[in-house]
Design a protein around this nucleic acid. Sequence first.
DNA 1: ATAATAGCTGGAGTGTAGTCCATGTCAAGA
DNA 2: TCTTGACATGGACTACACTCCAGCTATTAT
Lengths: 126, 126
Amino acid sequence: MYYRIGEIEKKMQISIDTLRYYEKIGLICPERDTNNRRLYSGADVAWLEFIFRLKQTHMPLKEIKKYAELRKQGDETIAKRIDLLEEQRTRLTQEKMTIDACLSYLETKIAHYKTDLIKKECSQSE
Amino acid sequence: MYYRIGEIEKKMQISIDTLRYYEKIGLICPERDTNNRRLYSGADVAWLEFIFRLKQTHMPLKEIKKYAELRKQGDETIAKRIDLLEEQRTRLTQEKMTIDACLSYLETKIAHYKTDLIKKECSQSE
DNA sequence: ATAATAGCTGGAGTGTAGTCCATGTCAAGA
DNA sequence: TCTTGACATGGACTACACTCCAGCTATTAT
């Protein structure tokens, strides 16, 4: 099953321009039909989904590209790819901790503001 | 207690250029000494810490600036500030879920690659 | 036959968040 | 007095990740 660029745009949340940009920087390389139009395979779709996930979690395209390069080089690079994925796992675990720290900071701040608000209301009703 | 820009740079992980940039876009407005040099108060430091946290969790400077504007306008805006902080809390909770989804995706992928590696080793030892 | 639709290319432009640089001022130490 | 160090300013430059545009081609619908 193949998809054309417009179908991919609708299927996933990636604009045609972005898809072409990703190709330009070497992230993805779909086949072409006889009229030179891009044909994205099921494997391409899976890869785009992966890219999408990595981007959602703030991996820069440069990093994603490293992984893409390894994919292109074939099975010899599987060990290296595992390394990259494990690094990313570590980063994400770290990031969750950062978020938790920020969340508790927010809670404290919100709580402070709320008591400020109550004080204000009291003084106004005097 | 006041700090000069070089001290702030060392104290926190923010370069002098970035500190001046933040001032330019109106995020922070330190006092000045008689020689026009910036003097950051303890409150400024606390505010920079807050900015740092928000940035760590990917809030764009524009959003941070909204909050900064409300701060400048004084106590009347506390309710609005609570709204912003609660929105951010929602976003971060959401983001944790995104990260978890990506993490389980990574686990699956790593597991697949590892079985691939084992297969490869077996076929090589034949 | 013609017009609309979907695609192509190369290249320019945009927004975000800095980062760098030339030039200048001021205070303190040798 | 002279130099060094820390600061100031305005403005140019950069990296990243798109986004837009002009001009072209091929397929489909009327």
